[in-house]
Design a protein around this nucleic acid. Structure first.
Length: 276
DNA sequence: ACTATGCCCTGGGTGC
DNA sequence: TGCACCCAGGGCATAG
């Protein structure tokens, strides 16, 4: 599940290798047509062809490919999407849904086994994510913003953290990790978290994402970077998918990590050090 | 305005 | 080995 750290890893991998490249040809393969949101597949292929990549940006889990006609190709990988940089002659992977060929003998392969990924081609990137809040690693994501956002909801804090209007880029892995770092029970009511704990949670969200980024992302399932390599953070998480294993905090005395379901999402936490 | 639910999609795991 | 079933989940539409 590519979340902010995974998308940022891909962005950093690609930036020096695709900026300045011209898109020679785009092919959306049969069965992969649903990726095209803003245009019909053939139209999107035609519109992208010939454009030069000027800059790579990111907002939350959206990768922003800024093009030289002042439009932006906005890619969301959802659960199983991958963007792989490959030589043009290399054969297609089993789950390749589209390919983007550049003018330098390389290209991007878009693989997506579940076909949930999306492509927008827009004048303004915001068109692709009109409701998203500030990127969780941007200066706009402040303690005051989080306090305000959490205060307006009565849902469990875990659910609030997954809401991209609160903090764009946080997904299931890093929400669980942030709540563990902050020592907050994921079932606690969002608007019941006191100011001091909100401040703590704000720092924990940033820390969880930076920890993931430092390990080049988490590869629990399919995630791979732009070179096809796994991230390392799934080996270093504190709670995510570690149910049944002991909490690593000394004061929890080996208390096992619990797993439950909150807002339809698998949720992992320590019942000892994470308090309501 | 808020919250809850269902939908999309298919590989991989489980149980028989 | 085969087969039915269930789960994973981000973001959106819809309903309450």
């Amino acid at each position: 599940m590519p979340e902010l750290p995974e998308v940022e890893t891909i962005r950093r991998d690609l930036e020096p290798r695709v900026v300045g490249r011209r898109i020679e040809r785009v092919a959306i393969h049969p069965g992969g047509e649903r990726v095209a949101i803003t245009h019909a597949p053939r139209e999107l292929e035609a519109q992208l062809a010939g454009l030069r990549i000027e800059e790579l940006g990111r907002h939350g889990k959206y990768l922003l490919v800024h093009l030289d006609d002042d439009r932006t190709w906005v890619v969301h990988l959802r659960m199983t999407g991958l963007l792989l940089l490959r030589p043009l002659e290399e054969s297609s992977g089993r789950f390749e849904r589209a390919r983007i060929d550049f003018d330098d003998g390389t290209g991007l392969r878009f693989e997506d086994s579940r076909k949930f990924g999306t492509w927008h081609l827009v004048e303004d990137p915001r068109e692709a994510f009109p409701r998203a809040g500030p990127d969780a690693l941007s200066a706009g994501f402040t303690v005051a913003w989080l306090r305000e956002a959490l205060g307006r909801r009565s849902v469990p804090v875990k659910t609030a953290l997954l809401d991209q209007r609160v903090a764009a880029g946080v997904g299931n892995i890093y929400a669980d990790e942030a709540l563990w770092l902050a020592g907050i029970d994921p079932r606690a009511a969002s608007n019941g978290i006191g100011p001091r704990r909100v401040r703590r949670l704000h720092g924990a969200v940033q820390q969880a994402l930076l920890d993931g980024l430092g390990d080049r992302g988490s590869s629990f399932d399919r995630y791979r970077d732009a070179f096809g390599k796994s991230g390392g953070h799934h080996l270093r998480v504190h709670v995510f998918r570690r149910d049944g294993e002991p909490c690593e905090r000394d004061r929890c005395r080996g208390r096992r990590i619990s797993r439950t379901r909150i807002g339809g999402r698998a949720t992992h936490y320590c019942g000892s050090c994470q308090r309501p």
